[in-house]
Design a protein around this nucleic acid. Structure first.
Lengths: 246, 246
DNA sequence: TGCCGCCCTTGCGCTGGATCAATGCACGGC
DNA sequence: GCCGTGCATTGATCCAGCGCAAGGGCGGCA
């Protein structure tokens, strides 16, 4: 068994005996996570500080503005990263997928909350421990920094999208970028799984749930996509790309 | 004279003799720039690689997707950071003010273009040179990374703003955040200078120039602000903050 | 001093997406 | 099998912000 199942803590829980049989070396996401820049001996060092942690659908990994006691590698599943406005309006900053690192900036507090969209497996480190390791390994810091730069790029794309694109363009762009992310993680297919609900997409794209639904229906009717349970099949990539390009 | 004025290159230009008389040690923005984490001897090392560079209003410091040959500290003035959509729609990602570092992520290409909103003074480094120094100074990399984390936070705020706020909230939030930035740079006042035009604000907030103008007029009529040439006086901070809070 | 060009402001009608409301549909519990 | 609950779709109406067009103010320049 890969992870413990509840004998040693509250939910969400983590146990010292919760690691892969062969440890980080055969970790599913090693080659696409920050760990990819580490040598085997370094990996062992980090492994000694790590615990696996699983969440069920809907559980929160951490909350916005909460002290960041831990940082995480996502191993399996997807999470929703949200920010709240004082009055309750919500924005979904993005979705974390396997290989993503949560707590990239190593800041004292989490700037978003993270909730599981389905069953999730993560690899958890105490932030202090992780930061201490980073201090001794400049190449790990470089790797984090590169990822931060990448995140910044994505954030800029998203700002452009939110500020200057129409509802249809937003939805088309979202589907394509999700496909691209799955592809980078080795899951290449024209059928894109949508682990999040319509409301999450809406809150990610600055739209309402009704508009997202209408746009998906419209794309379906136009045979650009095919709506399937739990996801979408992208039928006419060139057309979608034309929409996304604007 | 602090900088050269055109005897040694095309515009924009940089000259080896363009440094402050006493070098980085008495640099106006030293304490608020990335350089604040450096010791005096390190500062000298960096200074040897630096050149001052000035721009006039409207000149571009670099363009989107251009190879990032250089990175910059902004010393004086303000720049507009923009991204273009293939069809010409524009989004202003933000504005760079004194103390800001351009090229934070040390990536191979600039993800935005940077244009001077008025006379600008910068401190320029060849990216390779700067990256080489960073390699030898982990605390400098840490400082860059912290700034990247801060940028990421700002980007998230902006996404929330673009996706979920009304025109009035956007404008109020923008004015307050600009004030806060000036304050952090030591320029605290209820009169906020607006070095950018209405179109730039509009493209930053995901609005049209007309809507920005209308909202400013409305706030003025409501005595929440007072429009003055080249800027705005914030008359009713509590009210503005209430609007910004949503 | 007067003209020109640039930006900003304002009015007005239009529209994309929001809002409100009803219905459909899958899944779990009993 | 039947109902309840939560999510998705669809339709009808509304309205915030857009697009267009007409002024207005101001600085530069001859």
């Amino acid at each position: 068994m890969l992870v413990d199942t509840g004998s040693c803590g509250r939910i969400p829980h983590a146990c010292h005996h919760g690691r892969s049989e062969n440890g980080c070396a055969d970790c599913k996401v090693r080659l696409i996570s920050v760990c990819s820049v580490l040598e085997l001996d370094e990996l062992e060092e980090l492994e000694a500080l790590s615990h696996h942690l699983t969440l069920d659908k809907g559980q929160a990994l951490f909350g916005q503005d909460e002290p960041a006691g831990f940082v995480f590698n996502v191993i399996e599943g997807a999470l929703r990263l949200t920010r709240l406005l004082p009055d309750g309006r919500r924005h979904v900053m993005g979705f974390a997928l396997p290989g993503d690192f949560l707590g990239l900036a190593l800041q004292e507090r989490h700037s978003v909350s993270a909730e599981a969209l389905g069953p999730v497996k993560t690899c958890r480190f105490a932030r202090q421990d992780f930061a201490a390791v980073v201090e001794t390994k400049p190449h790990l810091l470089r790797s984090l920094h590169e990822r931060a730069g990448h995140e910044l790029n994505l954030a800029q794309e998203q700002m452009l999208l939110l500020g200057r694109r129409t509802a249809e363009e937003k939805v088309a762009t979202f589907l394509l970028s999700l496909r691209a992310r799955y592809a980078r993680a080795g899951h290449s297919s024209v059928t894109v799984e949508l682990p999040m609900g319509r409301q999450d997409m809406a809150d990610h794209l600055g739209l309402t749930i009704e508009t997202v639904s209408r746009m998906l229906s419209r794309l379906d009717r136009a045979h650009a996509i095919l709506l399937v349970p739990g996801g979408v099949r992208l039928l006419d990539l060139p057309r979608l790309e034309a929409m996304a390009a604007g």
